[in-house]
């Protein structure tokens, strides 16, 4: 099987965590450095991990979205390859317009770290069709999903909302924790599936998302 590409920007800090998770699932991870472009056909999937790319300066994800590697990520997305953005990776995909909407500062104006329960919905290759609620940790300061009314209606109509919080931690519109593009191959979520891969981490529900890389 082709390797899973993991992007690294200056300030990315969940890169090793995603690497470890991908390895734990029995797959081969490979780094994608932000200054380089790559051939999408060399990779089975691309994960854009979380962190504070470029210090979160200006707006979260805005500076990373302009990096050369994102040109290749866009190509991969256009070709239908599975692309997943986690936390800051979700913000980057939104800023790169590969995903609809934008993530703004939590309603509390505070960073929040806690375990949340999520209701999966919609159709994306990133979700195992088990259907049950998922328990995953969140850790972000700017995770409140925002979109205008028209775009939101479209998201609902087309089934692009794939994860909703049961107990909204950040004031997200309609409890949205994750959205996909129209085709469903590009998905973003604020919670961290790579932090819930083993029982000792406090739960294994992250496998329901990252485990889909296996098929």
């Amino acid at each position: 099987m082709k390797p899973v590409g993991i992007t690294r920007f200056l300030g990315t800090n969940c890169d090793r965590d995603v690497w470890q998770a991908v390895e734990a699932l029995g797959l081969a991870p490979k780094w994608l450095w932000f200054e380089d472009q790559f051939d999408p056909s060399d990779y089975s999937a691309v994960v854009v991990p979380g962190g504070f790319s470029h210090g979160d300066y200006l707006r979260c994800g805005a500076l990373a979205a302009k990096a050369p590697v994102m040109k290749s990520v866009s190509e991969a997305a256009a070709k239908g390859a599975p692309v997943l953005g986690i936390c800051n990776g979700f913000q980057i995909l939104c800023e790169a317009r590969l995903l609809p909407g934008v993530l703004v500062r939590n309603e509390s104006r505070k960073f929040i770290d806690k375990w949340v329960t999520l209701a999966p919905a919609g159709k994306t290759p990133w979700l195992k069709p088990s259907g049950g609620p998922l328990r995953l940790p969140v850790a972000h300061g700017e995770g409140r999903f925002h979109s205008d009314a028209e775009a939101l209606k479209k998201l609902n109509d087309q089934g692009q909302i794939w994860l909703k919080y049961k107990d909204n931690p950040n004031g997200s519109l309609e409890d949205i924790a994750g959205v996909t593009n129209e085709k469903g191959n590009v998905a973003g979520l604020m919670p961290h599936p790579e932090r819930a891969i083993h029982d000792w981490m406090g739960g294994e529900d992250g496998r329901a998302i990252l485990g889909t890389l296996l098929s």
């Binding site: 200006l58 805005a62 500076l63 302009k66 800023e95 909407g101 934008v102 925002h146 205008d148």
Partner: peptide
């Protein structure tokens, strides 16, 4: 328009 502002917000 290139990067400084995000028209969505």
């Amino acid at each position: 328009e290139f990067v400084l502002y995000n028209p969505l917000i």
